[in-house]
Simulated assay, not measured.
Amino acid sequence: MRVEIWSDIVCPWCYVGKARFEKALDAFPHRDAVEVVYRSFELDPGRAKGDVQPLLRTLTKKYGLTKAQVHANEDNLGAQAAAEGLGYRTRDRDHGSTFDMHRLLHLAKEQGRQGELMRLLFQANFAEERSLFGDDERLVELAVAAGLDADRAREVLADPDAYADDVRADEREAAELGANGVPFFVLDRAYGVSGAQPVEVFTRALEQAWGNRSPIELSQQDDASV
């Protein structure tokens, strides 16, 4: 069985949703027969690589929120992440383009290291002090930590066309499937789960997909992402 997960590295609900899905998957009796593939989705497509800003500024501008509202939302997200055993810095994070990260994830997919690179990118963005944006060598370090070759990672980052078509293809497919937000989970192209749902929802989806029973209704989450 194949599970495809559309997500973005700057999406906090993708970070939390990944942890919840993995808890369900770890307890699934057929875990070893499930292939998990991460698909590209940019919450801010077309953003210039050099456009790196404090997250607070991005959220107040994009959603018209006050500083207090942003901090309250981040505190809530921090609590949700902590409940899943995840680190989460609620203040002073940066925000920028994730296009290069998605290109590296396609490289990692070819080498069977996609899941590990996704984990490291999420951790770096949400839990670590050093910014993930505007520094190719930072991305190279994470790629190497995930098991990729440093020179090959640098080659990809230096060539803006490398894996660009793969990223855009993923994003077009998300639109065709009706996904206008992330995280979006598709199980065997028959069952869909939208949002960082509780572990029980993912468990039920896995069981239904495996048993080829009636499709579940699409579960929606109202929380806004970045």
Rank of each mutant, 00 (worst) to 15 (best):
V144C: 04
R91L: 03
L218Q: 15
G17H: 12
V70L: 02
P183C: 00
G211P: 02
V16D: 00
V16L: 09
V144K: 01
G115W: 13
L117E: 12
D100W: 07
H30K: 14
E217T: 14
E137H: 14
A158H: 09
A224D: 04
R213H: 14
D161V: 10
W6D: 13
E141T: 03
F41L: 11
E35S: 14
F126L: 08
E35T: 14
A158V: 08
W13N: 01
R57K: 12
D159Q: 08
R213S: 11
N212C: 13
R47K: 09
V10K: 05
M118C: 09
N212L: 15
F185L: 05
L177S: 02
V186D: 00
H71Q: 11
K62T: 14
A153G: 10
G178P: 07
K18W: 04
V70M: 05
F126A: 01
G85A: 05
G192K: 06
P12C: 06
A19C: 08
N125P: 05
R39G: 09
A164S: 14
R204S: 03
L43Q: 11
A72M: 14
R152M: 09
Q111P: 00
R168A: 14
A196Y: 03
L157V: 01
V3S: 07
T98V: 08
R113E: 02
V36F: 11
D51F: 07
L56M: 14
E207I: 04
F184A: 08
S131E: 04
E116M: 01
E217I: 03
Q114W: 09
R89Y: 08
D165M: 11
A143N: 01
L148I: 12
A174L: 09
H95G: 11
D170W: 00
G85H: 09
R172S: 12
A205W: 05
T66Y: 10
Q220N: 13
V201Y: 08
R2V: 08
K67R: 11
V186Y: 04
A145Q: 06
L105R: 04
N73T: 02
M118T: 13
S219M: 09
L59S: 00
W210R: 01
L105C: 07
T58V: 15
G195V: 04
E4G: 02
F41I: 04
A108M: 12
E128H: 12
P160T: 02
R189M: 00
D8P: 07
I216V: 12
G147F: 04
N212R: 12
A124G: 08
P45L: 11
R172A: 06
A150N: 05
R154E: 13
L25C: 03
R113K: 15
E74T: 07
V167M: 07
P12E: 10
L132E: 02
D136K: 14
F184I: 13
T90P: 01
P54R: 15
R113H: 10
G87M: 13
R89S: 01
G178N: 12
I216D: 01
M118Y: 07
A82S: 12
L25K: 00
